[in-house]
Amino acid sequence: MELASGVPPAAAGMIQAENLCKKFGELEAVRDISFQVNEGEIFAFLGPNGAGKTTTIKMLTTLLRPTSGVVRIDGLDPVSQQHQARKRFGIVFQDASLDDELTAHENMDFHGLLYSVPRRVRAEGIERLLKMFELWDRRGDLVKTFSGGMRRRLEIARGLLHTPKILFLDEPTLGLDPQTRNQLWSHVRQLNAEQRVTVFLTTHYMEEAERVAERIAIIDHGRIVAQGSPAELKRQTGSETLEQAFLALTGATIRDEEASSVDQMRNIARMWTRRPR
């Protein structure tokens, strides 16, 4: 599909990426990826550590400028129409984004204020979500006293407080117990079914991706190596399970170490060169 710059594409995908690239110095974190997520779809990004999932999400959500390529969020350009684009989505980040020195309730309430959720709706939403994620009894406690899992639940509850057109979930279930995971996915599916919220998620849990996502893109070393429905991916690779398909497409080597050594290099480099990101 052609994306003439400046001309918003006709009501095509909710999220579109065309030849998207991101370089951090020498490192090509995202290399020329293209995909489309349709309105009301649940789409999953699957990939080993360091594949470029979070980097892609950051470019889609206005936090990072692409090195090259085109992105559209509901037809809007996250680079030149940041403000409009931000009204379209909500996001649960992979890593922490809470204010530790505020209470759970304050974190929720401030989020609601920033997203202009009307007072009544805000109060009801906060109560409903904090109860759903079993944090209501702890709402008055400072977040710094929370366990890792409780923080994670609060991040998710906060991300769901306003109902956006697009919901980005970057490894939302990392470190969560199975009950909470179920809770989250059934809520997400309900939002998707009842309010046609488009969902873009990343996860390392294959069975989760298979259960929740209608379409999956497998990303490795910054490239999309395959995309399609879980059934299509299995058929393409002649695998029984999605996990086998995943391993067939990305190889069986562990990426953790590689990513962390790159991270180390990056930190060392950062100590000496103080360039802003």
Binding site: H83, R86, I91, F93, S97, L98, D99, Y115, R158
Partner: peptide
Amino acid sequence: FGFLKETLVAP
């Protein structure tokens, strides 16, 4: 500690 992200993606 991450809170900046929360404010920067807000509309």
